[in-house]
């Protein structure tokens, strides 16, 4: 068993969806983002997606792009991102951490070395935006050998044949991208998500989280009725941007406040019922 499978099993028993906030490591600086990371579980995070900043985040909208720029400007590096997870793990042994980012920084680190280093730091899963099933073996296999899941995407353009191929070697959970587009720019279309979840559930027992386009309590609650997890990224890092001028304590407080609010809606949505 892994922290990820334990978490999804526990949530299933409790009859609620996972709340999965995304923050970028090093945004707006390493110290502040660590303070946020450390307090996210108490603010309702069941799983945390931690962004590895990259200069060219081509699948991200303006909010996450800006977040990546702030992190790199503050001096974030892969070594510091891994240190941050290591430090988090000293006090939190149960909340899964999934690193999310682009392939080139991993390629530069060396995939085999990366797999070892993330496992040693206490990372549970990896989401690599520009590594489709056609190319992901190079990371998926060494990561799996270290007990780290490579999380695969399903999108509105994924047909049944691809879906089959995607779930065949998938582990951990699936990430359904709710809109064709970049992060944080279009609103999540509920009916399409419902249909997509039905397709996914018909061929796999893997949990499936939904992200891209969830920013309000209403949206979080609606998706919590359909999926195993609700991912919120742009709205959260947007709080970093919005409160930068008011100081770091304010940034931390507002990010955590939004997390608490959205986690509340996510957790309360099903009132203990299993998803439709």
């Amino acid at each position: 068993m892994s922290r990820l499978s334990d978490t999804f099993a526990r949530l299933k028993k409790e009859g609620r969806a996972a709340f999965v906030p995304f923050i970028t490591a090093g945004d707006p600086d390493m110290e502040t983002s660590f303070a946020i990371l450390a307090k996210l579980p108490a603010a309702g995070a069941d799983i945390i997606e931690l962004g590895m900043p990259f200069t060219d985040p081509m699948a991200d909208g303006p909010a996450v792009q800006a977040s990546s720029v702030r992190a790199l400007k503050s001096g974030a590096t892969m070594a510091k991102v891994l240190k941050m997870v290591e430090k988090f793990r000293k006090t939190d042994k149960t909340t899964p951490i999934v690193l999310m980012g682009y392939y080139n920084p991993i390629h530069a680190h060396g995939t085999a070395r990366f797999a070892k280093d993330v496992a040693a730091a206490g990372v549970d899963g990896l989401i690599v935006v520009d590594l489709p099933v056609e190319e992901d073996e190079v990371l998926r296999i060494p990561a799996r050998a270290q007990g780290v899941d490579l999380i695969r995407f399903v999108t509105p353009t994924t047909d049944d044949a691809r879906l089959k191929r995607i779930v065949a070697d998938a582990s951990g959970y699936l990430y359904y991208v709710s809109v064709a587009g970049v992060t944080g720019t279009k609103a999540v279309p509920e009916d399409e998500v419902r249909a997509a979840m039905a397709r996914v559930r018909a061929i796999t027992d893997l949990p499936c989280t939904v992200g891209f386009g969830i920013r309000t309590q209403e949206q979080a609650a609606a998706i919590a009725l359909l999926a195993d997890g609700v991912v919120v990224g742009s709205a959260i890092v947007g709080q970093v941007a919005a409160n930068l001028n008011a100081g770091k304590d304010k940034v931390i407080a507002e990010v955590l406040e939004l997390s608490r609010t959205l986690a509340g809606s996510t957790h309360a949505a099903r009132h203990g019922k299993v998803p439709a």
Binding site: A59, D130, P132, V133, E135, R152, T157, T158, D159
Partner: peptide, 12 residues
């Protein structure tokens, strides 16, 4: 070479 793109683009 190869095809290092997001899953959304892969079918295209």
């Amino acid at each position: 070479g190869g095809r290092f793109v997001a899953e959304t683009l892969m079918p295209l």
